[in-house]
Design a protein around this nucleic acid. Structure first.
Lengths: 341, 341
DNA sequence: CTGAAAGCGCTAACAC
DNA sequence: GTGTTAGCGCTTTCAG
C-alpha cells in the first residue's frame, strides 16, 4: 500500500496513522531524541505502510540543511573527461555515505556558484580545477557554506584544500629516473591551454619536475602536449629535437599517453630499453597501455572522497579548514629501466 | 552592499525596502502577473541592493517545483567515462537553459531514484544506460515526476525515450562498407559485460550489423572487446583467426579504438589499404586518432540536450511521452576504401 | 495593478 | 518519553 495516488503523504498522515504527534515522527526519523521501542515501531510501521518520504524542500526550509553537496566540475578546454569523471565518482559515492546527494555544476561561472549557495540549495561546495589565482576563491570565502578546493590556489584564504602533492610527484618521478642513472629527462606535460590558465596541478607538477632535475644535476626539457595523436607525436618530436640523447620521459597527460608511446616506437626508441617512461595518471590508465607503465598514481577517486569528508567535517562538526596534500606513490611496472650504456 | 552578514535576506526584507507587499515581489520575480514599470523597478532595485536570493527550499515547498533535474548516470563496469561525461555535459548545459540544476546519481539503485523523486528533490528524471529489461523502468512509471530514458528498453511503458538509432547505425556502417565492395566484415563491439547485461545500445547496434550483413549477403563475424590494450588486440586476433581475409571492421568501442588500430598495424594490415575501418563513436574520438577515422557519429552531448528538452516539455507543457531515435550520420574520413583487389 | 493572508511540510523549541 | 506549536521563506488564492 505504498500510496499510488498523486498527493504525497505527509508527516501528519504518518503521525495520525501511528497515533502519535508529528514531532514524534520527526524525532524517530532524525534520532534527535530518545523514543520508546513500542512507539518507534508503530511509527516505523506507519512510515512503511504509507510509503512516506519527507519532503526535501520542507525539511530544508525548517532545518536549513539540504543534505545536498554542490560540486563544481568546470569542463574547460582540454580537461580530461575521464579523469574528471573519476573525481566526480568519488565525490558522489562519498556524499552518499554521509546521506548527501550531489548537485553538479559544469560551468566555472561565479554566478552559478553564488546562485546555488545563496539560494540555499547546498550545504557545502566542492570545487575542481582550481587555478593559481582562481577568481572563485575570494567569492567562496564570503559564502555561508563551507567549501573544499580540489587543487591549491596561491592563496587558499582559509578554505580547505585537498590534492595530490603534484610538486612531490614531479620530484618523485625525476628522482626515480635519476636513481636509474638517467641524466637527460623530458617532461611531456599538459596542453598549452591548461598551462596558460595557470591550472594549479600543472604548475605544481612542473615545479616539482624542475626542482628535481636541478637538484639531481640532470638535464631537463619540458614540452606542452595537446591531447591528441598529432599533439603527442609533435611533443615527442620536439623533445627528440631538443634533446636527441634523451633517455627518460615523464608524461603527465592521460589522453596523449598511448600516442606518445606509439610515436616513440615509430621513431625507433624502445621502452624501456632506449627510453624509460614514467606516467603521472590514474592507475587504471597506466595498466591499460600495451606495456603496463611505471607510474605515479593520481588517486582521483580517493581525492574526491577526501574532499567530501573534509566538507562534511566542516558542515557537521564545524571543524576548521585544513589543507591536505597526498604523498605521491610511484609503482614500477616495467616501463623504466637503467640508463642504456 | 550585498549583505555580508550571515542571515540571508528574505522576500519580506525586499518588500519592505521597496515599499510593496511580499506578493508583489514574488510576482516581479515570477512574471506571473503584470506589474507596473515603476514598482517593478523599485523592487528590482531593492533585490539588487540587498543581494536577495529566493530560498530554494521555501520555493519548492510553496510551489512544488524544485527547478532541479535528476540525472541517473550509473557507473557500471566497462562504461566509458569519457562518453558518459559527454552525455552529462549535454544534460547539464541544457538544464541550465531551462533554469534548472542537475542532481547527479551515479548508482543504478532503484532506491536512490525513489528517494530523490518521492522526496520531491527533482521535477523530472533522466536515466542513462538503459537495459533491455531495465528494472528501473516499471518503478519510474509509478513516480509522479516525468522521466526520459536515454536508450530504449524492450517496453518503454509510456515513458519518453531518446537515443541514437543504433540499429540504423549498424546498418549504415555495413551498407557503406558493402558499397565499397567489402564482403567480409567484422564487428568489434562492446565489452562482454555490457552485452551480458543486455545494454540497450549494444544490442541494437548488433542487431543492425547483423541485419546489414544478412541483407547485403556479406559474411560477418562479431567479437566482444574489453576496453584495454590487451582486450583490443585479443579481439582483433580472434577476428583474423575466424575470418583471415576480412577486409572491413566496424568498431564500437571508444576506448579500444587506438589499440585496435595499433594491433592491425602490428599484424601488417594497413588501414585503409588492406582493411577498412568504420568507428561508431563521438566525432572528437574519430578525429583524435592518428588517422582520422570514417565514423558514424555518436552525438552524445546532443542526445543529452534532447533528453532535457523532452523532460522539460513534459514538466512545463505537460506534453505526452514520445520516443525519438536520431538518424545516424556517417562521415568519410579516410579509414575506408574500396575492397583491395 | 496591488495587498492580505492562508498554507506548503517539516523541525525544534517549549511544555509537561 | 511525548505533545503543542511557532515559525522556516515562499507562492498563490482571494479581495479590492
Amino acid at each position: 500500500m505504498t500510496n499510488g495516488s498523486d498527493v504525497a503523504t505527509t508527516i501528519d498522515d504518518v503521525a495520525r496513522a501511528a497515533g502519535v504527534s508529528t514531532s514524534t515522527v520527526s524525532y524517530v526519523l532524525s534520532g534527535k531524541r530518545p523514543i520508546s521501542a513500542p512507539t518507534r515501531q508503530r511509527v516505523e510501521r506507519a512510515i512503511r505502510d504509507l510509503g512516506y518520504r519527507p519532503h526535501a524542500g520542507a525539511r530544508a526550509l525548517a532545518s536549513s540543511r539540504t543534505d545536498v553537496l554542490g560540486l563544481m566540475a568546470p569542463l574547460r578546454v582540454d580537461v580530461n573527461f575521464s579523469v574528471i569523471m573519476q573525481f566526480v565518482t568519488g565525490v558522489v559515492a562519498a556524499a552518499r555515505t554521509f546521506g548527501h546527494d550531489v548537485l553538479l555544476l559544469t560551468s566555472d561561472e561565479i554566478a552559478d556558484m553564488e546562485r546555488v549557495a545563496s539560494g540555499s540549495m547546498v550545504d557545502a561546495l566542492v570545487m575542481m580545477d582550481i587555478e593559481a589565482d582562481d577568481p572563485r576563491v575570494p567569492v567562496l570565502t564570503g559564502l555561508s557554506q563551507p567549501a573544499v578546493l580540489i587543487g591549491l590556489p596561491r592563496d587558499p584564504e582559509g578554505l580547505s584544500c585537498v590534492d595530490l602533492d603534484f610538486a612531490a610527484a614531479g620530484r618523485l618521478a625525476v628522482d626515480h629516473l635519476a636513481r636509474l642513472g638517467h641524466r637527460r629527462i623530458a617532461l611531456i606535460g599538459s596542453p598549452r591551454a591548461v598551462m596558460e590558465r595557470h591550472t594549479s596541478y600543472a604548475e605544481r607538477m612542473l615545479e616539482g619536475f624542475m626542482r628535481g632535475v636541478a637538484e639531481t644535476g640532470a638535464q631537463g626539457v619540458v614540452e606542452a602536449c595537446e591531447s591528441s595523436a598529432a599533439g603527442a607525436s609533435d611533443a615527442v618530436d620536439k623533445v627528440l629535437a631538443r634533446l636527441p640523447d634523451v633517455t627518460a620521459l615523464v608524461v603527465h597527460n592521460e589522453v596523449a599517453l598511448p600516442w606518445v608511446l606509439a610515436t616513440l616506437r615509430e621513431r625507433g626508441r624502445l621502452v624501456p630499453d632506449d627510453v624509460s617512461v614514467v606516467a603521472l595518471c590514474p592507475a587504471d590508465v597506466a595498466l591499460g597501455q600495451l606495456l603496463p607503465l611505471t607510474s605515479v598514481d593520481l588517486p582521483a577517486q580517493a581525492i574526491g572522497e577526501l574532499a567530501v569528508e573534509m566538507a562534511m567535517a566542516r558542515v557537521v562538526r564545524d571543524e576548521p579548514a585544513e589543507t591536505r596534500l597526498l604523498a605521491p606513490q610511484l609503482v614500477e611496472r616495467g616501463s623504466t629501466a637503467a640508463r642504456p650504456a
